[in-house]
Simulated scan of single mutants.
Amino acid sequence: MVTNHKIVQFPMGQTVLTRGVNDLIAEDAAFAKLVTESLVRHATGDWGDLSEEDKEENDLSLKEGLRLLSAYETEGLPKIWIITEADRSVTTVLFPEEY
């Protein structure tokens, strides 16, 4: 599958949102756009606003079939995390404080 001319790197399974993320999506179009764009970035192996060490760990986790974590921030909007489980059955969008 190709998304925005980038190749999806792994199956994301079912996408779920925490209540907090879901509620803010319903209220804020800019936040909804951030979540949508971040899911595409996550699926294509763009790990977002992580340290280089954490990005390298994700690259290894992608090859080894381990859990993947991305973080995305946009000025004026809350930071989100996206976590795909090791078995690729579920991808969760959440606020860091909801972890």
Results as ranks from 00 to 15, higher is better:
residue 17 L to F: 15
residue 17 L to P: 04
residue 17 L to A: 01
residue 18 T to L: 03
residue 18 T to E: 01
residue 18 T to S: 07
residue 19 R to S: 08
residue 19 R to F: 01
residue 20 G to Y: 01
residue 20 G to A: 13
residue 21 V to D: 04
residue 21 V to Y: 03
residue 21 V to C: 07
residue 21 V to R: 08
residue 21 V to P: 15
residue 22 N to P: 02
residue 23 D to S: 11
residue 23 D to W: 01
residue 23 D to N: 13
residue 23 D to V: 08
residue 24 L to Y: 04
residue 25 I to Y: 02
residue 25 I to L: 12
residue 25 I to V: 15
residue 25 I to D: 04
residue 25 I to M: 15
residue 25 I to P: 14
residue 25 I to W: 02
residue 26 A to N: 12
residue 26 A to H: 10
residue 26 A to M: 12
residue 26 A to T: 10
residue 27 E to W: 00
residue 28 D to V: 09
residue 28 D to R: 15
residue 29 A to M: 12
residue 29 A to Q: 14
residue 29 A to T: 13
residue 30 A to K: 14
residue 30 A to L: 11
residue 31 F to V: 12
residue 31 F to I: 11
residue 31 F to Y: 09
residue 31 F to P: 15
residue 31 F to A: 10
residue 33 K to P: 05
residue 33 K to L: 11
residue 34 L to S: 05
residue 34 L to M: 13
residue 35 V to A: 02
residue 35 V to K: 06
residue 36 T to V: 08
residue 36 T to G: 10
residue 37 E to Q: 13
residue 37 E to H: 09
residue 37 E to D: 14
residue 38 S to A: 14
residue 38 S to P: 14
residue 38 S to T: 06
residue 38 S to E: 03
residue 38 S to I: 03
residue 39 L to N: 08
residue 39 L to W: 04
residue 40 V to G: 03
residue 41 R to W: 00
residue 41 R to A: 05
residue 41 R to T: 00
residue 42 H to V: 07
residue 42 H to L: 05
residue 42 H to F: 06
residue 43 A to S: 15
residue 43 A to F: 01
residue 43 A to K: 14
residue 43 A to P: 12
residue 43 A to Y: 00
residue 44 T to S: 03
residue 44 T to F: 00
residue 45 G to S: 04
residue 46 D to W: 00
residue 46 D to N: 14
residue 47 W to M: 07
residue 47 W to K: 06
residue 48 G to L: 05
residue 49 D to A: 12
residue 50 L to R: 11
residue 50 L to F: 02
residue 50 L to S: 06
residue 50 L to Y: 03
residue 50 L to I: 07
residue 51 S to Q: 06
residue 51 S to C: 06
residue 51 S to A: 05
residue 51 S to V: 05
residue 52 E to S: 10
residue 52 E to G: 13
residue 52 E to R: 08
residue 53 E to W: 02
residue 53 E to D: 11
residue 53 E to F: 07
residue 53 E to R: 15
residue 53 E to C: 00
residue 54 D to K: 15
residue 54 D to A: 15
residue 55 K to T: 04
residue 56 E to K: 15
residue 56 E to H: 08
residue 57 E to D: 04
residue 58 N to D: 01
residue 59 D to E: 14
residue 59 D to G: 06
residue 59 D to V: 07
residue 59 D to M: 09
residue 59 D to R: 15
residue 60 L to H: 08
residue 60 L to W: 02
residue 60 L to N: 06
residue 60 L to D: 07
residue 61 S to T: 00
residue 61 S to E: 00
residue 61 S to W: 00
residue 62 L to Y: 00
residue 62 L to I: 04
residue 63 K to V: 11
residue 63 K to L: 13
